[in-house]
Every structure is written in C-alpha cells, then in structure tokens.
Design a protein around this nucleic acid. Structure first.
Length: 586
DNA sequence: ATAGGGTTAG
C-alpha cells in the first residue's frame, strides 16, 4: 500500500539528482542505485540517466543503457543522437536515426533538428534532402528550429539557393534563422547577399544583433574586402556590447587584415583580454598575409609563453607566414618542433606548405626529398606533388617536374592541370618536341583546362579577367597601362618576374599559364584606370599571393600614391569541401 | 518531466 508513494518519491529523487549531476563518479553511483531499485525499466528515469552521461560526454554507458532499454521512446533516441553529435560522431547520429525508422518509434521535431544537424556537419546533401522530405511528410515543415537547421544544412552543403527557399517559406523567423541565412551566404562566397539579408534583418526585426549574426556579417565584409561595411559592423559590435567576445574579435582581426588594415587587426587583437588559440591564430595569419613573418613568430612565441596550446591550424599559419617572408630555416624549425616540442604530428598540409616554400625559394632537391618522405592519400598527394610540379616548372627543373607530374597523374586528380603545367615546363626549358607530344596526348584524352581568372570589384560592378583573354572592355588601354607600370617598376629596381614577358615570343600554351598567373595585375591596371581609390583586388587561390606579387603591389601602390586593398581569397569554399575544380585547385 | 537550430582562425 505504501510502496507506491515511496516508489514515486524515489523516482523524483533520482531525477532531481541526475538533473544537477556534473560528476562521473556521482553519476555512476546513482546509476547503480537506479539499477538496484529496478528503475532501469522506467523509460523516463533512464532517459535522465542517459542525458546525464551525455552531459559528461560519456557516450559508451549512454549507449549501453539505451541498448538495454525495454521501451526506448523518441526522447531516448533524440538524446543519444545529439550526444553523438556533441562528441564529434555525426555518422553514428545518422545511423541511430535510420535504426529508429526501422522500429515503431516516430521521430518528432527534436529528432529531425538533430539529424539535420548531423547532415550539416558532414555536408551530406543527399541525406539532408532525404530528411527534408521526411520533415514534410511528418508535417514539421513549419517548425522554426527544424527550418533553421535546414537553412544551415543547405548552406553548409553549398546549396545556398535551397537554403533561401526554406528561409523564405518560414512564417516566423528569429535571430537564429536570420543568422543561418546570413552565414549560408557569407560562407558560400556570396557576401553581397549576406549583407543584403542583414540589412533586411535590421529593418524588419526589432531585436538587436547578437554575436553570432555579427561574426557572420563581419566574415561577409572580410570576404568582400569591404572595409567600410566592416567598420560599420564593428560599430554595431561595440554598441551591442560584443567587443569582448573572442569569436567576434577573431572575425574582426581577420576582416581588417583582409581589407588591408593590419594596424586595426592588431588594435582589436590587443584589446582581447584573454585571447584563446583562435584570435591568436587569426592574428598570426594576418601578419603572415602582410609579409610580417617575424611578427607572426613573435605572436606564436607569446602564445606559447602564456600557456595557450597551438593546434594544427596555428602551425599551418606560422609555416605559411615563414614561407611568405622567406624564413626558410625558421619554417623547418617549426615543422620539426611540432612533434618534438608539442606532441603533434604534422599532417599533409603542413608538409605541403614547407615543400611549397622550399620549391619557391629554389631548394628543389630538398623539396623533392621532403615530398618523397611523406605518406599521403590521393587527394593530399595531388596537392603536394602539384605544388612541387609548379615549383619545378618555375625553376626549369624538368626531371623533378616529370616525376611530380607522374605522381599527380597517379593520384588521379586534376590530371588536366598536371598536363598543362608539365607542358609549360617543357616549353620553358625549350624542349618543344616533348611539349608538342604531350599536347597531342592531351587532345587524344580529351583533357582541357579551365582558364584561370581573377576579378576586380568597382562599386557594384565586377570585372572578370580570364587567363589569356585580352578582349575585355578597354583591353588595349589596360595593356598599355600595364606596360607603363612595368616600365616604372623596373626603373625603380623591381626585379620580380615581369608581366611584359607575357606578351612576347612565348608559345601559345605557355602564354596561357603566364597570363593566368599575372591576370591579377591586369585587373589591377584596369582598376587604376577606372577609379582613384579603394580598389579591391581579389586573387583566386590558384593565383598565389607570392612574395613577388606582394612586392609588386607595394611598388604599384607607392608609384601611384594610392591605397590598394589586396584581398587574397584563400578560403575558396569549394576547396574546403573537397569539390575543387581545375580552376581553384592550382 | 527528459531531447533540438546559428558565430571565429588554415
């Protein structure tokens, strides 16, 4: 007779205990008590226990509990699914979702939101679309959270227009939905639309912008090289009281650097009271991009002194900075220190960065030896050997170019570009017959290369320049301006590879490549003709911001006494997702 | 009653 209230009180006690429990020993103890009292058969109590383990990131006991539950419900499934997302295992989350569909428990809005998030993390468009279908079947297509997660998922899969379609279909929107949409645009290289949506947000929503939305807006300004918009966003950050936020500060540091104002980057960075690894890395990248390798190194050492652990991105940033400032010995030292001092194994990207530096500075044999010593998969191998291939072309080292191109072709990636670069190597070395037979082989295999391109934004218009194509608007004016600039640069002692070479006595094939490498200078020349100030030059990934280019820009800026904002589009989104094409690969 | 969505550096 008395057992029922007693049982009830025990259950309440267990639940209260588990709700506030943040200690594994205590959780295990409570688990044992629940087991003893037979409450593991109770779905509610066990769900609390599962959630407690998930809060402590212990998925193994959570899964075991779930597995042994007589009647898991939708909460049991959803909890465990989000638990696996929290420990970085979205695959298992989706597996659970599929298992759930085999049984009788029906998914609800929580389950869908979680499953969609897993697809977002994995950039799994196919899975995401499937779940979107189920969302409509089950009638959750009007749920705010489900829709926001769909917007985010489509954004992360680079399907921004689908994201927009979901966004437009939403009746009520909150800050999170707006953030998802803005982020989707910002991360897909559609910064203008990101800013447009942000304007709409300010117009339609009374709510203040929070740190999430501001970080994304700043990111959009950065990718557009829009300094003024960036400063406006910075103003909003200060007004809304988010200037102490680590994430926002990192975005600002990055934005100012990409807009050419490293002084502001430094100022923002120095105001962060306890910067974690990310603001430090942003600042190291910023310094590196501006050719301040020594500053990058100082920042890195300062970070170590303050006990902040660098991660693989930080090391990549330092190596990149050394590479771009010609600090060869330092770069090798940092590469070695990764495993020796910091207990981290360098990955393919770190090695590729160093191989690139050795190659560009003419240490071809060392670069080759290092490249050979690295274990890589196909994708990594294509990048690594492609880097060496370009370097050997630059320095006319045919034997290494042949070996490198062989490896690129073996890795079965972007064969076209490998062919073209090798062909150009032959041309530059004067081995016309080899070049010719290679070109023939390419034609036989139906391989052709997409032309490289660069572009310049002037006010609201974008001017695009394709490699080898001088037929654009005011082309002859641009060319004569270019020659004029080159003459002035030479007069003042500029010794980089010159653009004029491009137009004389070079075989057609080789010209395509060389014009490709220098088309940003065409863009620059064009910009100087058209507008006096604030020209934004965007350089695609394949048109590396090598030391030469950087020097050239400095010279041009000096000669013309004009501010030139140089923007290196390093994070080309397709590249991040491994969907690169010829154009952005090299 | 327990479970869900958005931000930063390469």
């Amino acid at each position: 007779m008395n057992s029922l209230p007693f049982t009830f009180r025990t259950k309440i006690y267990f639940i209260k205990t588990l709700q506030n429990c943040n200690d594994l020993v205590f959780a295990t103890l409570t688990h044992a008590k629940i087991l003893k009292s037979g409450f593991l058969n109770d779905t509610f109590t066990t769900n609390y226990l599962i959630n407690c383990y998930i809060r402590l990131q212990k998925t193994a006991p959570a899964f075991q509990l779930f597995d042994e539950m007589p009647e898991p419900n939708v909460v049991s499934y959803s909890s465990l699914m989000s638990g696996y997302i929290n420990v970085g295992k979205p695959q298992i989350c989706l597996w659970l979702f599929r298992e759930m569909q085999k049984g009788t428990v029906l998914p609800n809005e929580f389950t869908f939101a979680t499953a969609i998030k897993a697809c977002s993390i994995l950039a799994n468009l196919k899975g995401g679309k499937q779940i979107h279908g189920h969302v409509e079947i089950f009638g959750y297509q009007f749920n705010l959270v489900v829709c926001s997660s769909l917007v985010d998922m489509y954004g992360k899969c680079n399907e921004v227009d689908l994201a927009r379609r979901v966004f437009d279909s939403m009746e009520g929107k909150n800050v999170v939905s707006w953030t998802s949409m803005i982020t989707a645009y910002a991360q897909s290289g559609r910064g203008h639309e990101a800013l447009e949506v942000f304007r709409e947000f300010n117009w339609l929503v009374r709510e203040h912008a929070n740190q999430f939305i501001l970080a994304s807006v700043i990111n959009a300004c950065a990718s557009l090289g829009k300094l003024i918009s960036g400063k406006v966003a910075h103003g909003a950050v200060i007004r809304c009281g988010h200037h102490l936020d680590d994430v926002v500060a990192s975005a600002l540091v990055d934005m100012y650097a990409k807009c050419g104002c490293i002084v502001y980057s430094d100022r923002v960075f120095r105001r962060v009271s306890n910067p974690c690894v990310i603001p430090y890395t942003s600042m190291i990248v910023a310094a590196g991009k501006h050719g301040l390798g020594k500053l990058s190194i100082e920042l890195f050492e300062e970070m170590i002194d303050r006990g902040i652990r660098p991660n693989n991105v930080t090391f990549l940033a330092v190596l990149h900075a050394c590479s771009h400032s010609g600090l060869v010995d330092e770069s090798l030292e940092y590469l070695n220190s990764m495993s020796r001092k910091h207990g981290m194994e360098p990955d393919a990207k770190h090695y590729t960065c160093v191989v690139d530096m050795l190659g560009r500075t003419g240490h071809l044999d060392e670069a080759y030896q290092l490249a050979k010593s690295i274990k890589v998969n196909n994708d990594e191998g294509a990048v690594l050997w492609g880097t060496l291939l370009s370097a050997s072309r630059l320095h006319g080292r045919v034997e290494i170019a042949v070996e490198a191109s062989k490896r690129v072709i073996e890795s079965n990636q972007q064969v076209a570009s490998a062919y073209v670069t090798l062909s150009n190597t032959y041309v530059l070395a004067g081995e016309w017959e080899n070049a010719h037979s290679l070109r023939t082989k390419m034609k036989q295999n139906g391989v052709c290369k997409e032309p490289g391109c660069s572009w310049v934004e002037i006010k609201d218009s974008t001017y695009v320049f394709y490699a080898g194509d001088v037929s654009f608007e005011r082309g002859s004016e641009v060319l004569s301006m270019l020659r004029e600039l080159e003459r002035k640069m030479k007069e003042r002692g500029y010794k980089g590879r010159t653009t004029g070479l491009v137009f004389v006595d070079v075989e057609e094939e080789a010209m395509e490549e060389i014009v490709g490498l220098h088309s940003e200078k065409l863009a620059l020349a064009f910009g100087l003709i058209s507008i006096p100030n604030g020209v934004t030059i965007r350089i695609m990934k394949n048109l590396r911001m090598c030391r030469d280019c950087h020097e050239a820009f400095k010279w041009i800026s000096e000669i013309t006494e004009r501010d030139i904002v140089v923007r290196d589009v390093n994070r080309f989104h397709h590249f991040d997702k491994g969907l690169c094409t010829c154009r952005d690969f090299w």
